[in-house]
Write a protein that binds this DNA or RNA. Structure first.
Length: 451
RNA sequence: GGCCCUAUCGUCUAAUGGUUAGGACAGCGCUCUUUCAAGGCGUAAAUCCGGGUUCGAUUCCCGGUAGGGUCACCA
């Protein structure tokens, strides 16, 4: 059995989206799982619709997703070979020049394949035997001219020349397969193994497409998804490992993947589950890797300040707790979510009131908290702060004590708990923030300043 | 419409003749709790329909139905 060679053959006529990408993922995973090769072939025979920027987008997307290919071809570069095959097909009577009625955009002469009008069957690795009568296909066109081969001819010749053993592509190609097998037989090429993947569907269960709102892959990159999470999710849509494992690294997928576990029916692309998988991957990142990635999504000020105060590691802990994507972190940062880590908050005094109570009730509690914390030595940390304050909070009412304490430290209605914040910003800053609020002049002026 | 493919909770799926039809996401509830999250626990939710085959069908066969794909001088 010769070594496996799979290919991903997109046409550069649009941005790469999840539908296309899933085909690439399965072809890639199958190649890797069987120690074979993965080939990228840009199918750019349609000179009108093919655009260089789309080709760049395909390559950039695959790079971002770490789907590295062993070989890369551009179909338009095989013109000589296609011409040679066409000539042979014509001279041997399998194809012929056909005079047509010239329409507006049509040629008056094209090359048609002489259809033997037989029933063609093939064994699909996913669906079993598929059988079709090719009679109603007629003598289909395989080239616009001797130098302008069309899809079916180019695909067959290139797959043959590149030694493709497994054609893994979308279900929408099933009806193209008999035609291509006919050409293979005419030119003496071996028929590869076909595996027609179930389609990725949009919410209305139609084929995922740009028109139906499929995002380009790079949009996922820009909104803070991890390439490995996207790979993980795409692999799980239409395939399952046969176990209950759901979170996979790329290596694990390469080992676990097999054609036998592929689903036959189409599957809806569910962003919610993608987000969950992305979160799981974020949770598994090292603090260093997480911070490095987060830096791309944070404001320069946040990055600089957290780095300068050496608080990035603590910040990572907080960020992780509340985000499914790095885009969530960017949103939070833009809303000032991480400011209190490196900057004394400015807050209206009314914030101190627990559940709408008069803020003045909070001041005695804050004074007491301050007194409880002042004696703490160099064992300062979230746990010791909590231990020092907790009994008092229990006695006086947690909300009465902890709400104003938290707000005094964060200046925000929503934030992590006061112990965690105190632990991160340190003793001096914690005491300073409490004193700042207790200095009634300050509090009043803060209040006025913010209206 | 012709041809082709498909059919298990809302969604992704497990179970290839014998299970209380399992898991995950989402939902809901409870819990934790100073806030917002996260977490923990729990709950509801499915075999498209009709015939066969069989002691027994989610599973095999046939027929419907439904959905999808495809019918280019695009790929």
């Amino acid at each position: 059995m010769s070594a496996v060679v799979t290919r991903f053959a997109p046409s550069p006529t649009g941005l790469l989206h999840s539908g296309n990408y899933r085909t690439a993922v399965f072809a890639y995973l199958f190649a890797r799982s069987s120690g074979g090769k993965f080939v990228l072939r840009i199918e750019d025979t349609d000179r009108e619709r093919s655009k260089p920027e789309y080709e760049e987008n395909i390559i950039e997307s695959l790079q971002w997703l770490h789907l590295e290919y062993d070989e890369r071809y551009r179909q338009s570069e095989h013109g000589t070979r296609h011409r040679e095959v066409l000539e042979k097909l014509i001279s041997s009577g399998f194809a012929y020049l056909s005079k047509e009625e010239a329409g507006d955009t049509k040629r008056n002469e094209v090359i048609r394949f002489k259809n033997p009008n037989i029933r063609v069957s093939f064994e699909d690795a996913i669906r079993g035997t598929v059988s079709m009568d090719t009679t109603d296909l007629g003598d289909f066109v395989i080239a616009k001219s001797i130098d302008e081969p069309l899809f079916h001819l180019a695909v067959v010749v290139d797959d043959w020349d590149e030694g493709i053993t497994h054609v893994i592509r979308g279900e929408d190609h099933i009806s193209n397969t008999p035609r291509q097998i006919l050409i293979q037989q005419a030119i003496g090429a071996q028929t590869p193994v076909y595996a027609h993947l179930p389609l990725v569907l949009s919410q209305d269960r139609s084929k995922l497409s740009k028109r139906r709102g499929a995002k380009s892959l790079l949009e996922y990159r820009d909104s803070g998804y991890l390439p490995e999470a996207l790979l993980n999710y795409m692999a799980l849509i239409g395939w399952n490992p046969g176990t209950e494992q759901e979170i996979f690294s790329k290596d694990e997928l390469c080992h676990a993947f097999s054609l036998a576990q592929i689903q036959k029916s189409g599957a809806i692309f569910d962003e919610t589950k993608l987000a969950w998988i992305n979160r799981e991957h974020m949770l598994r990142m090292s603090p260093e890797a997480f911070w490095e990635h987060a830096e791309e999504f944070l404001t320069e000020e946040t990055v600089t300040m957290l780095d300068a105060k050496n608080l990035w590691r603590d910040a990572v802990g907080l960020m992780r707790e509340r985000a499914s994507t790095f885009g969530d972190i960017r949103t939070a940062d833009l809303a000032g979510e991480y400011r209190y880590l490196y900057e004394r908050p400015v807050l209206p005094v009314s914030f101190l009131g627990w559940k709408g109570e008069d803020p003045s009730h909070a001041l005695p509690h804050l004074r007491q908290v301050l007194e409880l914390l002042e004696p703490l030595g160099d064992v300062w940390g979230a746990e010791t702060v909590k231990a020092a304050v907790w009994p008092y909070a229990e006695t006086e009412g947690r909300g009465q004590v902890l709400w104003p304490m938290r707000v005094a430290l964060s200046g925000r209605e929503k934030s992590p708990d006061p112990f965690v914040i105190a632990g991160i910003i340190g003793k001096d800053e914690t005491l300073a923030r409490l004193r700042a609020v207790l200095g009634s002049d300050d509090a009043v002026s803060c209040s006025e300043r913010l209206g």
